[in-house]
Computed example of a mutant assay.
Amino acid sequence: MAHIALIGASGNVGTRILKELSDRSHRVSAIARHPEKIQAWPGVVALKGDIGDEAALAALLAGHDAVISSVKFLDSDFDRLTGAVRAAGVKRFLVVGGAGSLEVAPGQRLVDQPDFPAQYKQEALQGAVFLDRLKAVDDLDWTFLSPSALFVPGERTGTFRVGTDQLLSTASGSSISFEDYAIAMADEIEHPRHSRRRFTVGY
């Protein structure tokens, strides 16, 4: 059983990760701007936190075995977020990533394709920058988990593929449910296989 801090615990993805961790009997500090929105599952403590206040966030993160960030990249400040993790003395840092930086062909990112949805492009580009900056970090044991192109609510099947930097797809497209993504994130916490690396999951 691990003691995990989850930033952005009330969001679509954060909620699924929180439920998965609770179901596996981990203790979770669920951090959000509106903690009243957080589900009262076993082992979960809801905390009010602002990712813009590095010192206050560090105080919330102290004493945990791992930190997960499930916050939109456009709402994040890389330096403040990683600075808070460092100041808290937590080494394990996992990030809910995006699909945009995955390759669809050698040297060709999904986000750079002409049919990439315009409404998601800035978030995807910021996620790519976040990943590039993480790659230069050597004092945190980080992991960046990218979903597939279609990332939506769905079933918890427990059946999916794991990849590295290439977009996973089938004849019917590229997708993963929030629920199965949460399984992959919890698995990585329990059995780390992607230290200082990005990986991806999809059907």
Rank of each mutant, 00 (worst) to 15 (best):
I38K: 08
G14V: 08
L131D: 11
S22E: 06
E103H: 12
P106I: 01
A99Q: 06
S101V: 08
A99L: 03
D53A: 14
H64Q: 13
Q126K: 15
D79N: 13
R161S: 10
V111P: 07
T143W: 14
R92G: 14
L21R: 06
A184C: 04
H3C: 02
I183R: 04
A136H: 11
K72Q: 13
F144G: 00
R80C: 07
P106H: 12
V45D: 13
S101Y: 11
K91E: 15
D165F: 02
L140T: 08
L21W: 03
V45G: 07
D138H: 10
Q126W: 08
E188N: 11
T164D: 14
F144D: 01
T159N: 05
T200Y: 05
A30E: 07
V137D: 06
L81T: 15
V111M: 12
L81N: 15
D132E: 15
L57K: 03
G100T: 06
V129Q: 12
D180C: 00
E190V: 11
L6R: 09
S25Y: 10
S169D: 05
F130Y: 13
F78M: 07
Q108G: 09
S195Y: 13
T157S: 01
G173F: 13
R198E: 11
L57I: 06
A46R: 00
F160C: 07
S70G: 02
E36I: 01
L102S: 12
S69V: 07
F160R: 13
D139H: 14
W142N: 13
A182S: 07
D165N: 15
R197V: 00
S169P: 02
D53L: 00
L125G: 05
G63I: 05
N12M: 07
V44T: 05
H3Q: 12
F199S: 03
G97T: 10
M185F: 14
K121Q: 13
V104D: 03
I4E: 09
I189V: 12
D139K: 10
D138I: 04
K48Q: 15
T143I: 05
S10K: 08
G97M: 02
T164M: 02
D50R: 06
H64K: 12
G52A: 05
T157G: 00
L168Q: 09
P35I: 01
P147W: 08
G107R: 12
L60M: 04
R161Q: 12
S174Q: 05
G52V: 01
S175M: 03
V104K: 10
S25C: 04
G11F: 08
A124H: 06
E54V: 03
F130T: 03
V201E: 08
P117R: 14
A87V: 09
S101A: 10
L81I: 07
P147I: 08
S70H: 10
F93P: 03
G49C: 04
A9S: 06
A32P: 11
R92V: 06
L47I: 12
F116S: 08
G83R: 06
D79Y: 11
A184K: 03
A55V: 13
I17K: 04
A32V: 02
P117D: 11
I176H: 06
T170V: 02
V45C: 07
S25V: 10
A55Y: 09
R33A: 00
A84Q: 11
I4Q: 08
L81S: 14
V67W: 14
Y120C: 05
R196L: 07
